[in-house]
């Protein structure tokens, strides 16, 4: 299938999914709304990990920064939700750009460990409630619903469409990334950093940008996450979440939009079908991660390669 037809099929599937609230019960609407949020987050991790090849194992931090930004600005400062969203994106992007500055010189495994460290520090800081603004281990509750021109997006369906609308935008952004010089530069760096540099790619700058862009998109997802749950707490952004995001990209197929979406669905939608076996969830994930890597190390739905 050509890239264009692939895009058309994807767009059609997205349109069909918009009808979920009309077809399925409210439990499924909530599940698919959550899926959209995690899919955006996984796509944002794909920018850093799948495309630029930077071993980011602390991506839940940026989801958390976005969620906390919305929660704090809304509950403590009374900002309307929609006004907090740009702030959430900016805060996460800034954090990503700043944290990446000392990190991107590090070689693969060291970078992976350092990002794990940042994730742990982030959780500890949130739990310790500096200045009384993060609410400690309990987090922050009572986040408003978004309002658009006085119209409250209070219903579950309205939030679903908001999440899926943003997912649609994220998908467009990822598609454009495949077709622009910046997106290609990420792939050059991933495959051969020295060759990329001798072709004129400013590797430091491009990698920092990738971090900031990926973090910003995760911040946007975090904002939606806070609204969806109407509360945030540190436990949603722990290292296990970062591992899950990392695994989604590698198991699904790094740099492959359908692969990452498939990975997100496997990790977040399938467990909902088997709710009665919830305690086996991570046990089965563990087996699945090993099995997929051993049998299909390139991922379930790898990026299309040359003929």
């Amino acid at each position: 299938m050509s890239a264009t037809r692939m895009g058309l099929a994807g767009g059609l599937a997205w349109l069909l999914c918009l009808a979920i609230p009309a077809l399925a019960g409210s439990a499924w609407v909530a599940i698919f709304a959550t899926f959209a949020i995690y899919a955006i987050t996984a796509l944002s991790e794909d920018i850093i990990l799948g495309r630029a090849g930077i071993y980011d194992m602390g991506h839940a931090v940026y989801l958390g920064i976005g969620a906390y930004a919305t929660a704090i600005l809304n509950t403590a400062f009374g900002w309307p939700i929609l006004a907090t969203i740009p702030a959430a994106i900016l805060a996460a992007a800034l954090a990503g750009g700043l944290l990446s500055a000392p990190l991107i010189r590090l070689r693969g495994d060291y970078l992976l460990v350092a990002t794990i460290g940042f994730n742990a520090i982030f959780i500890l800081v949130m739990q310790n409630d500096p200045g009384g603004i993060t609410g400690g281990s309990d987090g922050i509750a009572g986040i408003d619903v978004p309002a658009l021109f006085g119209w409250q997006l209070a219903s579950q369906n309205a939030l679903f469409w908001l999440d899926w609308g943003v997912l649609g935008l994220a998908l467009l952004l990822m598609r454009n990334l495949d077709r622009c010089e910046f997106g290609r530069a990420l792939r050059y760096i991933k495959q051969d950093q020295l060759a990329a540099a001798t072709l004129g790619v400013d590797t430091r700058r491009v990698k920092t940008l990738a971090f900031a862009l990926g973090a910003g998109l995760a911040g946007l997802a975090g904002s939606l996450f806070a609204v969806q749950l109407s509360s945030v707490s540190p436990s949603s952004f722990v290292f296990t979440e970062s591992v899950t995001l990392f695994a989604i990209v590698i198991v699904g197929g790094p740099g492959s939009i359908p692969g990452v979406l498939l990975g997100a669905a496997l990790m977040f939608v399938v467990p909902e079908i088997f709710r009665d076996f919830a305690q086996y969830r991570y046990f089965v994930f563990g087996i699945a991660m090993i099995a997929v890597m051993v049998l299909r190390p390139q991922g379930l739905w790898p990026r299309r390669r040359a003929a």
């Binding site: 598609r175 622009c180 997106g183 290609r184």
Partner: peptide
């Protein structure tokens, strides 16, 4: 094609956000 295309990198005048926005 993609390999050779990579050599043209510095002649692209587009900014990263123009590319992302298409």
């Amino acid at each position: 094609f993609e390999n050779v295309r990579a050599g043209i990198h510095l002649r692209a005048r587009q900014r990263w956000w123009q590319g992302v926005l298409g």
